[in-house]
Design a protein around this nucleic acid. Structure first.
Lengths: 129, 129
DNA sequence: CAGGATCCACCCTGATACTG
DNA sequence: CAGTATCAGGGTGGATCCTG
C-alpha cells in the first residue's frame, strides 16, 4: 500500500466527501512502514530516528523521514528535538490520538497471526500427505 | 494504497518472514476500493459485478475485476457464476474467513468516524472565532 | 452482463550524495 | 545524528476498446 491511498483519501476529504471513514483510518497507516513504526512505538515506547533505522532494516532515511512526517501531520505521532553538544537528536512518540489506534493495530496483528497460523497448518497438512 | 504493500507482504511471506502479521492483515484490504467492497458486502450482502460498479462510482471494470480477484485469492471473498439466457451473471460474497474481518472493518469505520467528527468540530470552532 | 488487453500517467519507494 | 535534494525504477489506478 502506498500513499496513493492516503492521497486519494485526502482528496476526498478536501472535496467534502466525508463518507470514507474506514479509508480515512487506513490512511493513517498506509505507507509501507508506518504500521511497523506504530508497532515499535507501542511496544518499545518513544524512540529516536536512528532506532527506527535499525529496526526497519532496509529503509532509507528519506522514506523514514517521510513516513514519520506524515504520521506527525496526521497527529498520530509527535516529535521532540534536542541537541547534545553539536549533535542533533530526536524523539518520536505516540500522541493521545495515536494511542487510540493501539487497539486497532493490535486487532490487525491478532487477525494476521491467526490467519497465518491457519495457512501454515494447511500447508503442513498438505505436505504430510 | 496500492499493492506495493500487498506485494511486499507476499514477498516477505515467500521469503519465510512470517513476522509481518499486521501488514498481512492490512494487505487484505490494500487496494483503493477493497475496503469499500468489503463494506458493501458486509452491509448489503452478496452482490453482483454491476452492483459494485454502481456503488463505486468512477471505478473501471479492470480495476474492480482486479480487486475482486485479489480478494478471492486471499480467500476473503468467493464468487458464483451463472448464465440466464446468454447473459453472464455473477455473485460475490464474503467467505467464512472474510467474515472474521468484519469486526476489524467496523473498528476502522468507527475510529474514522470519531476522528473526522473531532476534526470538523475543531474546524467549526476555529471558524466561529 | 462480465471482464480481459493495452496504453498511459502518476507517485511512491529506494539509492546516492550533500548539509546543519 | 538527522535530515533534504535529486534521479531512476516499478507498480497501480484509470480510460478505452474488444470478447464470450
Amino acid at each position: 500500500m502506498s500513499d496513493h491511498f492516503r492521497n486519494a483519501v485526502i482528496k476526498k476529504l478536501n472535496n467534502g466527501d466525508f463518507d470514507c471513514t474506514k479509508e480515512f483510518t487506513v490512511s493513517m497507516f498506509s505507507g509501507k512502514h508506518k504500521l511497523l513504526i506504530l508497532w515499535i512505538l507501542i511496544n518499545d515506547g518513544p524512540q529516536g530516528f536512528s532506532y527506527f533505522m535499525k529496526r526497519l532494516k532496509g529503509i532509507s532515511k528519506k522514506v523514514l523521514s517521510n513516513q514519520l512526517n506524515e504520521l506527525i501531520g496526521d497527529q498520530i505521532v509527535s516529535k521532540r528535538e534536542y541537541l547534545s553538544g553539536k549533535v542533533h537528536h530526536t524523539e518520536y512518540q505516540l500522541t493521545d490520538i495515536g494511542q487510540t489506534l493501539i487497539p486497532i493495530v493490535i486487532a490487525l496483528n491478532d487477525w494476521g497471526e491467526n490467519r497465518l497460523k491457519q495457512v501454515s497448518l494447511v500447508k503442513k497438512f498438505n505436505n504430510d500427505l
